[in-house]
């Protein structure tokens, strides 16, 4: 399967990763081979088959509406690369 530069750029953008030129070339080759192989699935006739996301028919697993958690701010922020005033921090999201 032939993967275009546009496709590589598109999936990289979706995955939020920046690829160097060599990486792009490598990615085109690898994805082409892998997706080409994956297309073998089409040899298998699956007409009328229900797509199966869970292997077993489990349903209706619920929690009751009861507060079980307290203030865990310190613990939750402990791993943050940057924090300020008890918040996680990112560059300005609006100009």
């Amino acid at each position: 399967m032939i993967i275009s530069d546009e496709t590589i750029a598109y999936v990289a953008a979706l995955a939020k990763i920046k690829l160097s030129d060599e990486e792009k070339i490598r990615a085109k080759k690898d994805l082409g081979e892998i997706l080409g192989y994956i297309e073998r699935m089409n040899e298998l006739d699956t007409d009328g088959v229900e797509p199966m996301s869970h292997a077993f028919p489990v349903s209706n697993v619920f929690r009751e509406d009861v507060v079980t958690n307290g203030d865990e701010r310190e613990e939750m922020l402990k791993n943050a690369p940057k924090q300020k005033d008890g918040c996680f921090v990112v560059p300005k999201t609006v100009e």
Partner: peptide, 9 residues
């Protein structure tokens, strides 16, 4: 002030 965005979950 810090020209950043703070996140409250």
């Amino acid at each position: 002030w810090d020209d950043c965005t703070l996140i409250d979950y």
